[in-house]
């Protein structure tokens, strides 16, 4: 069991590296575009398309499982925290099935959509040219599938009561899910 968890964590780590690169590239790409536009009056062609389709599709969906692993998805505890700990535990366990259903369906659906877009080689107009966007559709099924697997694994861990092996440690003690808004 723990071995599976560790393997999953390893998998999440590699997907997270890709997502992290997307964030870093987004920053660099937009900055370069602004500099090139102002200094040389030559905006980099395709910046808006690449940022909004490629980097954003990666940043939105690829870290889903990473956030689940670190319990960073936002929920409201105010009612459940009044319940006895045991009830809380079972409730949280069974509610994982809902997340599994949602992300399982999304994985299947977005895979269909991605294959459809691949079939017609979907693109968008960018300046004088058109830029292929069909590859970006594949980030959704990948991110959703990994999320589905992690949630399902957490459910199995809950059912069997074994140790998870998932790396759920946050780097900082005070990095709460809401360290954000």
């Amino acid at each position: 069991m723990q071995a599976i968890g560790r393997l999953l964590s390893r998998l999440i780590d590699s997907v997270t590296v890709i997502a992290g690169l997307a964030i870093a590239f987004m920053m660099l790409h937009i900055t370069l575009d602004v500099v090139a536009r102002n200094a040389f009056n030559y905006p980099l062609p395709g910046t808006i398309t690449i940022v909004s389709y490629y980097y954003m599709a990666i940043a939105a969906f690829m870290p889903l499982a990473f956030a689940e692993q670190k319990s960073a998805h936002i929920s409201v505890e105010v009612l459940t925290e009044r319940l006895p700990p045991l009830v809380q535990k079972h409730l949280a366990g069974w509610m994982l099935l809902l997340s599994a259903a949602v992300f399982g369906l999304m994985a299947v659906r977005s895979w269909q959509e991605a294959m459809g877009k691949y079939g017609i080689k979907a693109s968008v107009v960018q300046g004088e040219d058109s830029l292929a966007v069909w590859p970006t559709y594949f980030f959704l099924p990948v991110g959703c599938l990994l999320m589905f697997v992690v949630v399902l694994y957490k459910f199995v861990v809950y059912l069997t009561g074994q140790t998870s092996g998932l790396d759920s440690e946050r780097k900082r003690a005070d990095s709460t899910p809401a360290e954000t808004l």
Binding site: I120, K121, A122, S123, V124, V125, S130
Partner: peptide
């Protein structure tokens, strides 16, 4: 708006 979808 068809120009949004050049491939379609």
């Amino acid at each position: 708006l068809a120009p949004y979808f050049p491939a379609e």
